[in-house]
Design a protein around this nucleic acid. Structure first.
Length: 560
DNA sequence: TGCGTAATAT
DNA sequence: CATATTACGC
């Protein structure tokens, strides 16, 4: 089967444009539902009496993909006639009444779902799932023609999926998907946290019962991915297995799990050592985490194909730059005084992360910070709430980029590069002069302490112009100096001092990396790039006629 | 109980 | 090695 991206063109924005028949005698509720649906870019045709609706579907049976039908209390057959007539059309019954027998009757007659009014947006948004479900579930050729395009569309997506996984493609699948329909996935993702949950529990289980496992699994997989990407606001952290080394890719997935206990539970049962009487939670498949882990391990070819209950003992939090960014953001937001594990945890809103995780991280974070800012001036970080903090960059007019590119620019006295750059200026005031283009909420400081393999592309999801092949060699930590150029200088004057060895490197490669680094100061330094040494900064400054440098920059002593 | 810290384990 | 865990004092 040929499955090119063009196959998807047919319904690129899949749920959008779904044609919905709305039959509701109550004009106000009808209008409301219609509005909501149209906001979601569904195409709605409303009917207020059953006969019109019936004639519509009988004259043009392929017009609609899904129907939403009110169960009337007035007319006695309560639109059941429609339900019977529209067997091919996935039909959702809606009503004000809470009558179990009515509900059951509807379901028995083929309604795919019964919803109480008022309908939440989630419910409405998710109606497409029924359509897909029906498209796959209707036996073979019996798929109503209105659903065929959907089935094909989804099938081709699924096919792409499986192709990708066969290739043991190094590119995370998420990226594949997103690149295949790049245009609209933003929008899709906007509300994506609302997608994953089927409108009703019944759907999840019901589907499993009926469907053939393959499709279903793939579909779940797909749906999961649709919402997995959400970059800015990842909500859960995936704990990683020990092997995690291979993957620098962002390990956060948005799972929006209602019960936060998911991971925590597993922790104590982690190695299942003493407590044989483990929790019974495990048997529930409610645990999205586990399934995503499974996917992941499949992706890297480590998966044990048989055991569905993949190791629950992955409990190490991988502090990806992204996760750390959130951490720092939270710390900053709280101010150092308030930055205690529990609050940080709250602010981070990362699912599955425990207070212990945060505490441990915080501990390390503080240690490193303190190591960098020796006692001399701990006020630099202990009173970050102080509004006068903005003075912490007295050299501002001098330096071109808002804050020194990385906080590490301001070199500590120690010759070695501290793995944990200190926070350049923890207070929000720093944002005041961050140039408008920058995501000012983002902490200026990101730890370059960890070199993620493949982090250029993966950890941040977006292309960071990685050095295509040969990433810069990790050089011995003495020579290579990245001379940071300041504002007055023109762009071309940024330079790199090479030692002979490095001259062999393709200049363009380096330039690319440097440009990238300069233009995106919020990213960690790419592997191989070092922040400028104190000496180089100073000499550069003096070369430009700036001889006096404040003795204290950002709390770090530069001179004397 | 929660926090911070250091030592220790994985 | 980075992180978790533990232990201890507050």
């Amino acid at each position: 089967m040929v499955c090119t991206a063009s196959d998807l063109q047919g319904w690129k924005d899949f749920p959008k444009g779904l044609r919905v028949l709305l039959l509701d005698g109550d004009s106000s509720s009808s209008a409301e539902i219609r509005t909501k649906l149209e906001e979601m870019e569904y195409v709605v045709v409303t009917y207020c009496n059953e006969n019109d609706a019936l004639s519509a579907i009988s004259s043009k049976p392929d017009t609609f993909h899904v129907a939403i039908v009110e169960v009337t209390t007035s007319s006695h057959d309560g639109n059941f006639k429609f339900l019977e007539a529209a067997k091919d059309l996935p039909t959702i019954m809606i009503s004000n009444i809470h009558c179990l027998s009515t509900m059951m009757k509807c379901i028995a007659l083929g309604a795919i779902e019964f919803l109480q009014k008022p309908l939440s947006e989630d419910k409405l948004r998710n109606i497409w799932q029924h359509v897909v479900h029906k498209a796959f579930n209707a036996g073979g050729s019996a798929v109503p023609s209105s659903l065929k395009p959907i089935k094909e569309s989804v099938a081709s997506i699924l096919h792409l999926e499986s192709e990708n996984s066969e290739n043991d493609n190094p590119v995370p699948k998420e990226l594949e998907i997103s690149s295949s329909d790049d245009d609209n996935d933003r929008e899709l993702l906007e509300g994506s946290d609302k997608y994953p949950a089927p409108s009703t529990p019944q759907q999840k289980h019901g589907m499993r019962l009926v469907d053939d496992g393959d499709c279903q699994d793939q579909l779940n997989c797909l749906l999961e991915k649709e919402c997995a990407e959400q970059d800015g606001e990842s909500k859960s952290v995936e704990t990683t297995c020990i092997n995690s080394l291979g993957e620098g890719i962002s390990q956060v997935e948005n799972t929006q799990l209602p019960d936060k206990e998911g991971i925590k539970e597993e922790e104590n049962s982690a190695d299942g050592c003493g407590a044989a009487s483990n929790d019974d939670h495990e048997i529930h498949d409610q645990d999205i985490i586990s399934s995503s882990e499974e996917n992941k391990s499949k992706a890297c070819g480590l998966g044990n194909s048989s055991g569905t209950k993949v190791s629950r003992k992955k409990m190490k939090v991988d502090w990806t730059p992204e996760l750390h960014r959130k951490f720092v953001q939270a710390v900053e937001q709280l101010g150092v005084n308030q930055a205690i594990p529990s609050r940080i945890l709250e602010l981070m809103k990362v699912e599955g992360l425990t207070r212990h995780n945060v505490a441990s991280h915080l501990q390390k974070y503080r240690m490193h910070k303190r190591h960098i800012l020796p006692k001399q001036d701990d006020s630099s970080w202990s009173h970050s709430k102080d509004p006068m903090r903005k003075n912490c960059y007295p050299q501002r007019p001098v330096m071109a980029f808002p804050p020194p590119y990385h906080s590490n620019h301001v070199m500590p006295v120690a010759p070695i590069y501290p793995p944990w750059g200190h926070m350049a200026c923890p207070s929000p005031s720093v944002q005041m002069w961050v140039s408008p283009g920058y995501p000012s909420w983002q902490p200026q400081e990101i730890w370059p302490w960890k070199s993620y393999p493949g982090m250029y592309a993966d950890a941040w999801g977006c292309p960071v112009t990685p050095p295509p092949h040969s990433p810069l060699p990790s050089h011995p930590p003495q020579q290579p100096i990245f001379r940071f150029e300041n504002a007055d200088a023109h762009d071309k004057s940024y330079g790199i001092a090479f030692n002979p060895m490095e001259l062999q490197l393709a200049d363009e490669e380096i330039d690319k990396v440097v440009i990238e680094a300069i233009s995106k100061p919020w990213l960690p330094l790419p592997l191989g790039l070092k922040p400028p040494s104190t000496e180089s900064v100073l000499s550069e400054l003096s070369r430009q006629g700036i001889s006096t440098v404040p003795s204290q920059i950002n709390g770090s002593k530069l001179l004397q």
